[in-house]
Amino acid sequence: GTVKVQGITIKVPNPDKAYKIAKKLAKKYNLTVTRKGNTIKVE
Results as ranks from 00 to 15, higher is better:
30 N>W: 11
29 Y>M: 05
3 V>I: 12
19 Y>V: 01
16 D>E: 09
36 K>R: 13
34 T>R: 08
36 K>V: 14
38 N>S: 07
42 V>T: 04
27 K>L: 09
5 V>E: 03
11 K>H: 13
32 T>M: 10
6 Q>F: 15
19 Y>Q: 00
7 G>S: 08
2 T>L: 13
7 G>M: 08
35 R>C: 10
21 I>N: 02
20 K>F: 08
2 T>A: 06
19 Y>T: 00
9 T>C: 15
8 I>A: 03
18 A>L: 12
15 P>E: 02
32 T>P: 00
42 V>S: 02
3 V>A: 05
13 P>Y: 10
42 V>W: 03
7 G>R: 07
2 T>W: 15
10 I>C: 15
22 A>T: 02
26 A>E: 04
19 Y>E: 02
4 K>P: 06
37 G>Y: 02
18 A>G: 02
9 T>E: 08
3 V>D: 04
33 V>G: 00
3 V>P: 04
18 A>V: 10
1 G>F: 12
30 N>F: 12
6 Q>N: 13
42 V>M: 05
23 K>A: 06
20 K>M: 13
19 Y>R: 03
43 E>H: 11
5 V>C: 15
43 E>T: 13
34 T>M: 07
34 T>D: 01
34 T>V: 07
11 K>T: 10
39 T>A: 08
34 T>G: 03
12 V>L: 08
28 K>H: 08
33 V>Y: 00
20 K>D: 09
43 E>G: 10
30 N>K: 09
11 K>S: 12
40 I>N: 03
20 K>Q: 11
7 G>E: 04
41 K>S: 12
28 K>Q: 08
5 V>Q: 05
5 V>K: 06
2 T>H: 09
23 K>N: 04
3 V>Q: 06
35 R>A: 03
28 K>A: 10
27 K>G: 06
42 V>G: 01
7 G>A: 08
36 K>M: 13
7 G>D: 05
6 Q>K: 13
21 I>M: 08
22 A>H: 01
37 G>F: 06
19 Y>W: 13
35 R>W: 10
15 P>A: 14
4 K>C: 15
12 V>P: 04
41 K>I: 15
39 T>I: 11
6 Q>H: 14
15 P>F: 14
15 P>I: 15
28 K>M: 12
12 V>N: 02
18 A>N: 00
37 G>H: 03
34 T>W: 12
25 L>R: 01
8 I>N: 02
25 L>I: 07
32 T>D: 01
3 V>T: 04
35 R>H: 02
33 V>W: 02
18 A>W: 14
29 Y>R: 02
20 K>T: 08
6 Q>A: 14
14 N>H: 08
29 Y>F: 10
11 K>C: 15
20 K>V: 08
20 K>G: 05
24 K>Q: 11
40 I>K: 02
3 V>H: 05
39 T>D: 09
8 I>E: 01
6 Q>T: 10
1 G>S: 07
14 N>A: 03
17 K>V: 12
42 V>N: 05
9 T>K: 08
33 V>S: 01
28 K>S: 07
33 V>L: 07
10 I>T: 02
43 E>P: 03
28 K>E: 05
16 D>W: 12
26 A>T: 02
21 I>Y: 11
25 L>H: 01
37 G>W: 02
10 I>L: 08
13 P>L: 14
39 T>Y: 10
8 I>M: 09
10 I>M: 06
36 K>H: 11
35 R>S: 04
25 L>A: 01
38 N>D: 07
28 K>R: 11
38 N>R: 08
37 G>D: 04
10 I>G: 03
23 K>F: 08
40 I>D: 01
15 P>C: 15
20 K>H: 09
36 K>D: 12
